[in-house]
Measured scan of single mutants.
Amino acid sequence: WEITFERNGKRITVRTTDHRLLELFEKLWRNGADERELERLAEEINR
């Protein structure tokens, strides 16, 4: 799966075969987690 999240013109794409990681990322994104931390998390998930 691949999903791109966008907020205030900032886009972060997450790619993984584990839908649970996408759900976790989406919850953090929707709850306003720090964008720098989300970028780092996305990099780890995308590996």
Rank of each mutant, 00 (worst) to 15 (best):
E44T: 11
G32Y: 05
G32R: 03
H19G: 09
T13R: 06
E37F: 14
R40W: 09
F5S: 00
A42E: 03
E44C: 15
L24F: 12
F5M: 06
A42Y: 06
N8V: 02
L41C: 06
H19L: 14
L41S: 01
F5T: 01
R36W: 14
L22C: 09
F5Q: 00
R15V: 10
T16M: 05
T13E: 03
W1K: 06
D18E: 07
E37S: 10
L21W: 10
L41Q: 03
I3N: 06
E23D: 14
E6F: 04
I3R: 11
G32S: 05
E43G: 08
E26M: 11
H19C: 11
N31S: 15
H19I: 15
K27A: 14
T13Q: 07
K10H: 12
E37K: 08
L21A: 10
E39F: 04
T13K: 07
T17F: 08
E23F: 04
H19W: 13
F5V: 15
T4K: 03
L22G: 02
R36Y: 15
F5R: 02
R11C: 08
L28K: 06
L24S: 06
G32P: 02
D18Q: 05
I12Y: 08
N8F: 03
T13A: 04
L22S: 02
A33E: 09
E39C: 07
A42T: 03
W1S: 06
R7E: 04
L41V: 10
D18Y: 02
E35V: 15
V14D: 00
F5C: 07
R20Y: 13
L38F: 03
K10S: 09
R40P: 03
G32A: 06
E35C: 09
F5D: 00
E39K: 05
I45C: 05
N8C: 04
V14S: 00
F5K: 02
K10F: 11
N8Y: 02
L24D: 07
H19M: 14
I3P: 02
I3T: 06
R47N: 14
T4P: 01
T17R: 11
E6G: 01
W1N: 07
R30L: 15
R40V: 10
V14H: 00
A33R: 02
R47Q: 13
G32C: 06
W1A: 07
R30I: 13
I12E: 00
L21I: 09
R36Q: 13
L24R: 06
E2G: 01
L21P: 00
K27E: 15
W29E: 06
T16A: 10
T4Q: 07
N8I: 02
T17L: 08
A42N: 03
L41T: 04
R20F: 13
R47S: 13
I12L: 06
V14C: 01
L41H: 03
R15Y: 07
R40C: 12
L41E: 02
R7Q: 09
L38T: 01
E39L: 11
F25L: 08
N8L: 05
R15Q: 07
R11P: 06
K27P: 02
E43T: 09
L38Y: 03
K10A: 10
R30M: 13
E23K: 09
L41R: 02
D34Y: 09
L21H: 05
R40I: 13
R7G: 07
I45D: 01
D34E: 09
L22T: 02
F25P: 00
